[in-house]
Amino acid sequence: MNAELQLIDAQTAVQVRGLNVVYETTQGDIPAVQNVNLDIRKGQITGIIGESGSGKSTLVMAMMNAVAKPGRVASGSIEVSGVGDMMKLSTEQQRRARSTELGLVFQAAQNSLNPLRRIGHQVLDLGRSHGVKDLRALLRKAKDLLERLGLDADRVLTAYQHELSGGMRQRVGIMFALVLDAKVVILDEATTALDMLSQASVLQIVRELHEERGLTTILITHDMGVVGDLADRVVVMYAGCIVEEGVTQEVLTSPKHPYTRGLIRAIPRISGDIDKAVPLSGSPPDMNTYKQPGCLFADRCPLAAPECQQSRPPLLEVETGRHVACFRVNDHA
């Protein structure tokens, strides 16, 4: 499509470089995403994990260049494979790219559905706004997808949002994300509001569809379990920065950033010695955390050294395909 396409290699679906997103407040700009460099690999499930306020949702909204006011992308580029730099596209091109290239599934999906229109009508609306010629075929595709998701397609298409349960809505959300053949699917806390049994079956469906359709899936969650179960790669975010990134299995078995280590330890498990679970100390980042020059995690970190208070550690590749932002990455026990 354009020259910039050549910048990203064939293995990468989305390439984020030097991304900074700020929220404008009366007290000045608050950084929500800071200096993020990230490659989302094609055909893999990437889990982005972080707590509320860690910037994980802002990061993916920035990937679609859809950060809502008062947020603003301050700098950076986002190359989407087959589309180009989202920051440089026209508004119309960006709009087209969402849904046809990048499909987003919101939390519990209830906010993304129009409560006053039947699901079927909304499929048609989506088709029309993306200039789909054959609406009949689109509807057929939606029907196939819904059936694949284990739903009674005819009932769902004629239903209003409120007639569906949480798990059903979430599946409808997945259908909307996929009906225009998006290659990259982003699930933003898509299972958070669901019951345990619905969560398990929605995750199972995500896993199956990912393989069947050769998708690139991005999973945003605060639940280490969801990432640990499903993702191939995991990105750990803290206070707007990526602190660790790597293959899920490796990150889980040998976490290198003290935050990742603390987070994994702070989750009680259903097997093994329960007393190995240790709470993470300190309090979550606030306004003052961003103002100091040092590592954002320094005040909660058991390994913090004087240098950690002075400057912020960059995200460096410590092993092949493994990035960590910590000065003391080799110093832990």
């Binding site: 345990m196 640990g228 179960d229 078995t253 498990r269």
Partner: peptide
């Protein structure tokens, strides 16, 4: 339904 941590 409890998610399983890969590798652990």
């Amino acid at each position: 339904a409890v998610p399983v941590l890969k590798g652990l």
